[in-house]
Write a protein that binds this DNA or RNA. Structure first.
Lengths: 160, 160
DNA sequence: CGATCTTTGTTGACGAGGAAACAAAATCGC
DNA sequence: GCGATTTTGTTTCCTCGTCAACAAAGATCG
């Protein structure tokens, strides 16, 4: 296997491990709330006027899925919806006090993960950070361009 | 946001984009086969005596899920199972000729992805590869250790 | 050897998310 | 302004993967 594949495979593996491990911890600390629910809470907490469409785009999920999650979060009393008088179509979300509490727990957990992995990151030099960030940035915008292209293809093949 | 979080967030974002984009392409090229089915085919093709348990560990999935995927792959005639006379419990899998064909298509697609992203990787120096691989390796084994620890915790809380 | 525990694989019920069809509001084109 | 199209959100149906319970075959230990 060449280095290119090693990097991709390595990061994929790393990502899976990290997701799996953190998910387990999350489940314990945020019992009763699904990971995707917590993600939505976090986004809503950080972005004013979040709505179903924005959340869907952010998490690469369908509006359908987000709609259901939002419904559940409202039933739990973690978020509430509001509208603007000038727009009766879009429905925005904001956190309730209870939602803020969950958000804070999540933030603390995030810090705990950082603390847990501190030893690894302490060994990373500034130059390495910059190198990796440049790589991520370059690869990401490359894929973004491909997704745009692909989007065009998709709309041209709606009837296949 | 500090560089540590930027790197993690950046790679998460990158990973999501890559997965989303490749999944779309896969769906077109390997119509009729789900991503997880293709993953299993690939593993079975590359590892002699693959069984449900090994596949589950490899993909961080439950034996239950793999069992169902294997069942489907057998119904499709892409894999076949065999046993050893000295062990009547374990069930191993191998690809059929048809399964090999799917595996080859997948391999070609993999090459196509590499070709698509070549421009990005051409700009990466040997030193950068090594730096990233060291990072992945270090982080990965750190998490591996944490998972082991966590595994111990888990078996101690089976009755919660 | 025989009883108990562990490992391996399967099944059924369930929950999460996607696809498609839909309603309602906004926007565009004239 | 008015019809056609687009955008936004919801609901229904379906598939995938998990969890729990289970059966069957090893492994362990007296």
């Amino acid at each position: 296997m060449n280095k290119e594949d090693q990097v991709i495979e390595g990061f994929r593996e790393l990502y899976n491990k990290l997701a799996w491990l953190n998910k387990s911890k999350m489940e314990i600390a945020l019992k009763g709330h699904k990971p995707s629910e917590v993600h939505c809470i976090e986004y809503i907490g950080k972005h004013a006027d979040a709505n179903v469409t924005k959340l869907a785009e952010r998490f690469y999920m369908t509006r359908s899925a987000i709609s259901k999650i939002a419904k559940k979060l409202m039933e739990k009393g973690l978020i509430e919806s509001y509208q603007r008088p000038e727009n009766k179509k879009e429905i925005y979300f904001k956190l309730t006090e209870q939602g803020e509490a969950v958000s804070r727990i999540h933030e603390e957990l995030h810090n705990a993960f950082r603390e847990r992995d501190k030893a690894v990151f302490e060994q990373v030099t500034e130059a390495q950070y910059d190198s990796m960030l440049r790589f991520v940035e370059r690869y990401s915008s490359h894929l973004e361009a491909e997704i745009k292209k692909h989007g065009v293809e998709r709309s041209a093949e709606t009837d296949d």
